[in-house]
Design a protein around this nucleic acid. Structure first.
Lengths: 254, 254
DNA sequence: TATTCCGATAGTGAC
DNA sequence: GTCACTATCGGAATGAG
C-alpha cells in the first residue's frame, strides 16, 4: 500500500473522479473517504484539500500543521469540526437505519500517523471490525489512552494563554506516543484488562451486543410509553378531552 | 509429550517389550532408541539403564552424573563411548548402503537437556531433517558452538590434575549455555552466517548435496583407478607378470 | 534445550 | 502509528494411571 495514497486523493483536481467505494463526500475544502481498513462498523477519514494558507507539506500531519500560524490553524480545525459534524450526523442516521439506535462516534487524530497527509478519523466507538487485528490498532483508537487525540482536545490546546503549554502539546513526541501503543490491552468502556487480541475482540463484541440489547429494551419501554400515552390520549378523546401530544424525539428514562 | 518418557524406557525391566519403532538395540547396560524427532538423517539416543553405582537421580542428566564419584563416572563414560562406537558403525553401514558413502557422526550431550534421564545423542552431521525447525534445535547440535558437548570433550575434562577445572566444567551453568542457543545462525561446516532457519536449512541441504556429489566423483575416480589397476594387472598377466593388488579400502587422492 | 499451540513481536517490502 | 508476509520469540499445556 502506498503511504501517500491519501495525499493523492487530497490533491485531486476533481475528487468526484474517485470511485464511490472510496469517496463518501466532498466539497471545496475537504474530501471524506471510507477508511480502506475500517476499525469500527463506521470509519471515515476527513482529508483537507490543499489550499491557502497551507502547503502540501504543512498538511503532511498534525505536527507539521501545528507549526503554522496559530490562528489560521485554530480556524481551520474549527472548520473541520463543523465538517465532521455533518459526517457524524450521516453516520448516526445510518446507525438508526441499520441498528435502530445510535452510539458514540469519535473524531480525532492519531498522534503519530503512518500515512502522509493529515487525516481526521471519524470512527464509531464499537471498534468491532475484522480489520482491527493488532494491539497497535486498538490502542491507537483507545479514547482514553492518549494516542488518539480527540479534535476537541486538540482545540483545547488553543484555549490557553500559555505559549509553552501549546508548544509542549504541539511537539507530539513520536517516541512518547509510540510507547502508548504497547500498553496492555484494556476495554475502553469498562476498564477490564484483556489478555490478548482475540480475548479483547470477543469482549468488544460482547459489549456491543449488550449495548444493543439495552437499547432495544429502552425502545421497548419507549414504545410502551407511547402506547400508554396514545391510549390515554384516546381515552381522553373518548372523554372529550383532546390536546395530549407525543414527541417522536422523546427518550424513555434510563 | 512426557518429559520423563526416556526415563521410563531406561527403567524397563525388559526393554525388548518396546516396539521396534522406538528401540534400536539394547544390552544389560543401555538402550539405544530412535530419536522421535531426528534432527539429522540418522539420530539415536543411548540411554543408560539404571544400575550400580548410580541412582535414577544420578542419571537424571549430565550435571547430576558429574556430581558422582569421578572415577566411576569416567569409567562409565568410557563404556558409553565403546557402546556408541557400535551404533556409529551400524549407522555408517547404513550410510554406505543407502547413500554410497559415509559422513561424520557426532556423539555427545546437550549441556542443558529438556527431558529427564541422561541421553547421549548419536547424530549424523548432515542435520538435514524436517524436524529441525528452530534455531535452538540447530544451535543445540552445532559442533563448535559449545552447547553440544562431544563425549570426547567431556572425557577430556577428566584428563587434568586440576580439580577446579573439572568442577568448573561440570557446573554446566544453565544460564550460560542457554544463551548459546540464541546465537546467530551460521553453517558449522563453512562458517557462513545464515539469516534465518529456512535459509539455513536450504544451505545445509546444499552442503549435503555437494558432499554427495564430491563423494560420487571420488568414487568414480576410485573406480577408474581400480579399472586401470585391473587393466594393468591383466596386461601384466598377459605379459606374464602377476602380483599387482587393489585394496577395497583404497581412497582416491582428494 | 522434548513438542505443539497460540499469540505477540519484529523486519521487509510494497510502486 | 498503512498492510501483508514471513519468521522469530515467548509462554503454557502436555501424560499416565
Amino acid at each position: 500500500m502506498s503511504l501517500t495514497i491519501l495525499r493523492s486523493y487530497a490533491l485531486k483536481t476533481d475528487p468526484s473522479t474517485l470511485p464511490p467505494t472510496i469517496l463518501f463526500s466532498h466539497d471545496d475544502h475537504h474530501l471524506v473517504v471510507f477508511d480502506a481498513f475500517p476499525k469500527g462498523i463506521f470509519h471515515f477519514l476527513l482529508l483537507p484539500r490543499v489550499q491557502e494558507p497551507f502547503s502540501t507539506a504543512d498538511l503532511s500531519n498534525l505536527r507539521s500543521l501545528l507549526k503554522c500560524d496559530r490562528d489560521s490553524v485554530k480556524a481551520t480545525l474549527e472548520q473541520w469540526k463543523e465538517d465532521a459534524k455533518v459526517v457524524v450526523k450521516d453516520i448516526e442516521d445510518e446507525m438508526v437505519r441499520r441498528y435502530g439506535f445510535k452510539w458514540d462516534i469519535w473524531v480525532g487524530f492519531h498522534a503519530v500517523p503512518s500515512m502522509e497527509h493529515i487525516h481526521l478519523h471519524i470512527v464509531s466507538s464499537d471498534l468491532c471490525s475484522e480489520k482491527l487485528k493488532h494491539k497497535k490498532h486498538y490502542n491507537s483508537f483507545h479514547p482514553k489512552l492518549g494516542f488518539f487525540l480527540h479534535l476537541d482536545e486538540v482545540l483545547s490546546w488553543f484555549d490557553t494563554e500559555s505559549d509553552s503549554y501549546f508548544a509542549t502539546m504541539a511537539k507530539l513526541d513520536k517516541h512518547k506516543y509510540e510507547a502508548l501503543l504497547k500498553e496492555d490491552l484494556s476495554c475502553w468502556r469498562c476498564g477490564l484488562s484483556q489478555k490478548n487480541m482475540p480475548t479483547l475482540k470477543a469482549h468488544l463484541q460482547t459489549e456491543f451486543d449488550e449495548l444493543t440489547k439495552k437499547e432495544k429494551a429502552k425502545q421497548a419501554r419507549k414504545r410502551k410509553f407511547v402506547e400508554k400515552q396514545t391510549a390515554s390520549s384516546e381515552a381522553q378523546e373518548v372523554s372529550k378531552k383532546p390536546k395530549a401530544s407525543t414527541s417522536s424525539d422523546h427518550e424513555a428514562e434510563e
